[in-house]
Design a protein around this nucleic acid. Structure first.
Lengths: 207, 207
DNA sequence: CTTTGGTTCATACAACCGTTTCAAACGAGC
DNA sequence: GCTCGTTTGAAACGGTTGTATGAACCAAAG
């Protein structure tokens, strides 16, 4: 086995970094292998095609984040017992894991938030299928939790409001350190997160 | 002059269509010229580089949309007279023009919404500068109007809520006919727009 | 020691990229 | 009719792309 894992994960790390910085299409396989100091053929050997590599990069992050979301949702529902969980807590279970994972420096995740936001706009059909597979069960659980807490809303209504929340979250992840005016007072990420959660919660509470 | 305009605008139309469908980087100038039935060199002759073409495609749409937003804001403020305009009307002035322009079939705009949503995630520095230039004055006017209507909110607070609104809008534009579950009841675009506006308005009204 | 199965390497491949070139075609003004 | 500036055309440029090939390498198994 030698240091297979070394090569494989060095490719994954470098690819993630470059993809999130420049976009999937502006990064060539040669850019990745050069920066990872790995042979050109290593990518095709370990992952198959470039598209397979893209999938692997996404899966490595999306799966844990969505698992963390599920776990957070579990925790929120268990804590609420028989009562319905608070709206802010449900939304927090959806929003917070992306922050946690995108800022944890121990896992080379500094750049993950941008990658994550990006994955929604890159139009590869295979990537779209992957996303759908990764998000469908989560969205279903979210819907169920929200319907319990907001029983007066129809499932369709919840769907649209989730879409808006999703958009706000991902646009924020993608641009949270871009387009900032000079006069803006800098605030912590946690404070930004709370702003987003209460913004979305208010949107969900509309009659 | 002959049919210069014909060639030029046929390139613009085709480029817009292909860019919005496949993304900026997945479309080559050969794809464009082939589909537009125009000589390969025509793009470089009329626009310079491919990046210049991208800029031209965006500008042709972004400028009118933002002008329409400005005009709508003017109308809302004039109608309110000395009083502050209603929050929903301000947000509508920002949101509605993107709908109007992305659905008007008389201007080949069927695909514009996707292009528009896409332009925020493609990381070209020149495009970013173009966007900043096109949006800064608009955002300033929006901020001013919102501060007048919501005087208890700080400018920074309004900035973040605008970012969330922006994200919800653009994610919606980008995916409004994607990832739709089978059980979802179909509704008109106007109804979706109203949902978005009241969602965002509620977020702005949080104390 | 030799074989084996997995991994790395340099190199080659065909296809495509954005851009340039320059001759041909063109309509307007004299 | 004949220039003249503008627009189109076919072809080529050098460079890069993703992928494939087959030899070299290496740890572990027999």
């Amino acid at each position: 086995m030698k240091q297979v894992k070394d090569t494989r994960s060095r490719i994954l790390d470098t690819a993630e970094e470059l993809f999130s910085e420049h976009g999937l299409d502006r990064v060539s396989i040669r850019d990745i292998t050069r920066k990872a100091r790995v042979n050109l053929a290593a990518i095709n050997y370990h992952f198959g095609t470039k598209e397979d590599l893209v999938g692997a990069v996404f899966e490595r992050r999306v799966i844990p984040v969505n698992q963390a979301r599920m776990a957070a949702l579990d925790g929120v529902e268990k804590a609420a017992g028989k009562k319905s969980p608070k709206l802010e807590e449900i939304l927090g279970a959806f929003i917070r894991p992306t922050i946690t994972y995108s800022l944890d420096p121990s896992q080379n995740n500094k750049t993950f938030s941008r990658l994550f936001g990006r994955c929604l706009t890159e139009p590869s059909p295979e990537l779209e299928a992957l996303l759908k597979k990764q998000f469908e069960p989560l969205v279903e659980r979210m819907d169920a939790a929200l319907m319990k807490t907001l029983p007066h809303l129809s499932r369709s209504e919840i769907f649209w409001r989730m879409k808006f929340t999703f958009g706000a979250l991902h646009h924020w992840l993608l641009t949270k350190d871009k387009f900032l005016p000079t006069w803006l007072e800098a605030i912590e990420v946690e404070a930004q997160t709370q702003k987003l959660i209460s913004f979305a919660a208010a949107g969900f509470r509309v009659a």
